[in-house]
Computed example of a mutant assay.
Amino acid sequence: MAGRQKLRILCFGDSLTAGYTQMGSVYHPYEETLQQMLEMAFPDVDIETVEDGKPGDTVKHGFLPRILKNFPFKKQDDESYDWTIVLGGTNDLAYNIKPEDIFEKLKQVWEVPLRRKSKVLALTVPEAGVFREQLNTRRTTLNDLIKGYKREGFHVFDLHTAVPFFAMSTKDQERYWDDNVHFTSDGYDLIGNKVGISLVSILAKEKANAPPAKKRRVFRDDDKSFEEEVGDPTAIDQGYIVVRRKDLD
């Protein structure tokens, strides 16, 4: 009997991936809800999600060394990841790093899993609860660069549009945001739900577009037992070797 299909996903990023909330006294990563979404959508698949988020980390200075540790060259294929979800850039923008520089580093980060045959789902940088025209302009520039990138195995989910701050009611802002940058537990669950819907949609499309499995041709007497097969297989004076067409496929 063939084993169950497996799906391993790495959720990589900074504090927004780690699920940082309540000034770091609580961590509630979106990865938990993401896994629940995938398990409901694909009950016959063994789902494993791994969270690697580091609060305060920047794409420019911290992401590349860390993601390389997740994809060592000697790692076995069954220990690697089928998908890598990357969310980063919030801290870089806060440090006034140019969006073009952040994007160039993001491409290097994405390339690591892509070279190991792990597909990438890049998330755009979400809104913050503070309106600063210059910051918003740089965030928009970075997100446009992310959304415009094309590469085989590379996908984008626009988290910025899916979870807006200013378009939400005051009640929802209080429910989903813990401060001007980080989310509450409900907020991270919302992210996990949105990202989960996106990934389920991508996986469903891939499954629908996959070529049908090749059917084995069945020949007459393939499943018939011959009396010549009965006997002690270790005795050279008993039985014959019967070769069927299916044994040659």
Rank of each mutant, 00 (worst) to 15 (best):
R8D: 11
L87P: 04
I202S: 03
W177G: 02
G88V: 12
P233K: 07
Q173C: 00
G24K: 05
R220S: 15
V125T: 08
Q76N: 15
A167D: 12
K60R: 07
K147Y: 01
L68K: 15
S201Y: 06
A210H: 10
P212R: 11
Y27M: 08
G53H: 15
L145K: 08
I241R: 13
D223W: 13
K60C: 03
P233V: 15
D237C: 08
R151I: 03
E228S: 10
P211E: 03
K147D: 02
T184S: 02
K205L: 05
D158N: 14
H155T: 05
K194I: 02
E133C: 04
N136M: 09
L203E: 07
G196M: 06
D78I: 01
V156H: 08
V230A: 14
D52F: 10
S201V: 01
L10Q: 04
E152D: 13
A162R: 03
L7D: 11
D232V: 06
R138D: 10
A122T: 06
R245A: 14
F157S: 04
V181S: 02
D221V: 12
D144S: 13
T58H: 00
V120C: 00
L199G: 01
G231P: 03
K98W: 07
Q76P: 11
F226C: 08
A41S: 13
D179N: 15
G13I: 02
G187V: 06
T140P: 01
D247Q: 15
E229F: 12
P55R: 00
Y27S: 02
N209Y: 06
V242H: 06
G19W: 00
V45F: 07
A128N: 07
V26A: 05
P164M: 05
V125M: 07
V86M: 07
H28G: 00
G88Y: 06
A94W: 10
N180V: 09
V130Q: 14
M37H: 15
L64F: 10
I191N: 02
K105D: 11
T234Q: 03
T90L: 04
E228C: 11
A128D: 00
A41Y: 08
V243W: 12
D82L: 03
P55A: 03
S15I: 03
V218L: 07
S25V: 01
Y188K: 14
G192T: 00
V243F: 10
E111A: 15
P99G: 08
S118V: 09
L93M: 06
V242Q: 10
A204L: 06
D14P: 01
R151K: 15
T141W: 01
L121M: 13
W177K: 01
E133H: 09
N91R: 01
Q5G: 01
S201H: 13
V86D: 00
K215A: 14
F131W: 15
T184L: 05
D247C: 08
R116L: 12
V130C: 14
L114C: 00
P99D: 08
P164Q: 04
M37T: 11
L93E: 06
N143K: 07
S198Q: 11
M40T: 13
A208V: 05
F183K: 03
Y30M: 10
F154H: 04
V50E: 10
N91P: 04
K194H: 08
T161A: 14
T33W: 12
D101N: 07
F157T: 03
K69T: 10
K119T: 05
I241E: 13
K224Q: 09
D44F: 05
Y30S: 09
R220A: 10
Y30G: 08
